[in-house]
Design a protein around this nucleic acid. Structure first.
Lengths: 122, 122
DNA sequence: CGAAAATTAGGAATGATTATTAATTTCAAC
DNA sequence: GTTGAAATTAATAATCATTCCTAATTTTCG
C-alpha cells in the first residue's frame, strides 16, 4: 500500500464525476507532481480487479472509473456524452440479476437519453 | 449506398457474435479483398449514427457492433470477456426507461457474471 | 453520357493504454 | 533501527484501436 495507491483510491472515492484515467492523473499530480501516468493506470487496474472500484465503458470515450456504493444506473446523453447517475431499487436490481442465474455478480444499467442542456438547446 | 456499405450492413446483421470492427473488417475482406479498414470504421460510425446498427462498449476490449432487433440485454463474463444475450421483457424495459423520463431513447443492461465454461474450469 | 458530389483505398497521425527497465520504496525479520 | 528481498515507481518506448488526410474512383442524377 504505497502513498500513490492511497492517493488514487482517495481521488476515485471522493469523486462524483466518473473520472477518466487522464482526469485522475491530472488530479493526482496536484497532490504529488512526480506521479507517473503508468502508475495511475496500473493502480486503477489493480483496484478494479480487487473489486475496490468499478470501471465503466461508454462509446467513443476513454474508460471511466466509479466508486462502489449503493447500486445505481447511468444516464448517458447521446448528444454530449455526459453521464449522470440514477437510483435503482434493490427490487429492480434483483429482477435484472435473476436473468443470469446463480453466477450473476453485478449489473450495469445505462439509459441513452437527451440531458436537460442538450434537449433545451434544440 | 455503395457495395462496401451494403457488405458491412450484411455482415453486422447476419452476425450473432457482437463483432468488433476488426472482425467485421476481416470478414469483409473475404468477400472484397480491396476494402480498406478506414472504410469499415467510417461506415460503422455512419450506420450507428443513422440508427441502423448499435454500438456496444465493454471494459478492456474494442467497441462491438450489434444489430437492432427485439430488445435484449448482455451477459458479460468477467473471466473471459465473452458476451451472450438474454431476453428482456417489454415490461422490465419500460420500468427501466421510466427512470429517465420523457427523453429516454433506449437502454443497455449488462450483467457481469461467470459463464458456464469459466465457472466449470475452477 | 457527363459533371458534381460522395466515397473509397492507402497510409499517416492521434489518443488511450500497456510494456519495459533501472531506480526507489515498502515491509517483515532480525 | 538495519537489512535485504519483493513490490512498486517514474520515465519512456511501444502497441492497439480509431480517426484523419488526400488523390483517385465510383455513384448519382439531370
Amino acid at each position: 500500500m504505497t502513498k500513490q495507491r492511497k492517493l488514487i483510491i482517495g481521488i476515485v472515492n471522493s469523486s462524483r464525476n466518473h473520472p477518466t484515467a487522464a482526469e485522475i492523473y491530472s488530479e493526482a499530480r496536484r497532490m504529488m507532481p512526480s506521479i507517473a501516468v503508468g502508475t495511475v493506470y496500473r493502480n486503477l487496474k489493480l483496484l478494479t480487479n480487487a473489486g475496490e472500484i468499478r470501471k465503466l465503458s461508454f462509446p467513443g470515450q476513454p474508460e471511466r472509473y466509479d466508486r462502489i456504493e449503493h447500486p445505481h444506473g447511468h444516464l448517458y446523453c447521446v448528444a454530449c456524452g455526459g453521464i449522470n447517475d440514477f437510483d435503482i431499487s434493490p427490487a429492480l436490481r434483483d429482477e435484472i440479476l435473476a436473468h443470469a442465474g446463480e453466477r450473476a455478480i453485478s449489473c450495469d444499467v445505462t439509459i441513452d437519453y437527451l440531458c436537460d442542456a442538450c434537449a433545451g438547446s434544440k
